[in-house]
Amino acid sequence: MESFLVSTGVVALGEMGDKTQLLAMLLAARFRKPVPIILGILVATLANHALAGAVGGWVAQALGPDVLRWVIGASFIAMAAWMLIPDQIDNEDAGGRQLFGVFGTTVLAFFLAEMGDKTQIATVALAARYGDLVAVVAGTTLGMMLANVPAVFLGDRIAKAVSMTLVHSIAATIFAVLGMLTLLNVGQIF
């Protein structure tokens, strides 16, 4: 349960102000069809995070426990630093033409935008840390949905009401604490 809850919280906070959240707002403004956009985000996130989780599981087996602890701890600390750098959406991430319809455009745009993104890398690290692929992928996917579904419906109002600097600082702190606990070999986080 810990792996699910930590994965959900870390990704939900990490996604705030992220380029994929900005992409969700852009797609909502462009297509004005929230249901296929939300379903597209869900499918893209499940596929992307399942692959990332599988890579995390492979890394955990390949490195062994001692090396893995240092790699994961350093990764979490690097993620903490990365969280302090605000994201901006690239125009090409917006989906361009509507060749695949609203759902297909959303799946493709989100899957590609999430490649190498903070939340994808966090999913790799979380899967390697906890070793429970299903709980981590379910948690990171829920975290993505918690951050992006309101963005689809409320978009600009959320961006104006919430301090992204504060949210990113909280997420960075969580990643830093996870990194230090991992480096110190603390088994249970909460």
Rank of each mutant, 00 (worst) to 15 (best):
V67G: 05
T141I: 08
L166V: 15
L146H: 04
G143E: 03
L181M: 13
D90K: 14
L27R: 00
I77W: 01
K19Q: 10
T173H: 03
V71F: 03
A138K: 03
M115S: 08
L39N: 08
G155H: 01
F4Q: 01
I158K: 04
L154M: 10
K160E: 13
V162T: 08
L22N: 06
N91G: 13
W82C: 11
Q120E: 15
G101Q: 07
I41P: 03
G56L: 09
L126P: 10
T8A: 12
P34V: 10
A109N: 05
L154I: 03
T106N: 06
D18T: 00
F190M: 10
I38G: 00
T105E: 02
I77E: 02
G101M: 07
N91W: 08
M25S: 06
P86Q: 01
V43M: 10
L133M: 12
T45W: 02
D117Y: 03
G116A: 07
G53C: 08
V149N: 00
L166Q: 09
W82R: 13
S7I: 08
A52E: 02
F4M: 02
I37C: 03
P34R: 03
V167N: 01
K33D: 13
M16E: 05
L68Q: 08
L46E: 07
F110Q: 07
G53P: 06
L181F: 14
G73W: 00
G9A: 10
D117E: 15
Q88Y: 13
D90I: 06
V6A: 03
L22A: 04
L178W: 02
R30C: 09
I72A: 11
Q88F: 09
A151H: 00
V67T: 15
G96S: 05
A78W: 02
A47R: 10
R97N: 14
P36I: 09
T20N: 02
F31V: 04
L178K: 05
D93T: 12
A159T: 13
G139S: 07
I41V: 15
L13H: 06
R129G: 03
I41H: 00
P36Y: 12
I77P: 04
P36Q: 09
S75P: 03
H49V: 13
V6L: 08
V177K: 07
Q21P: 14
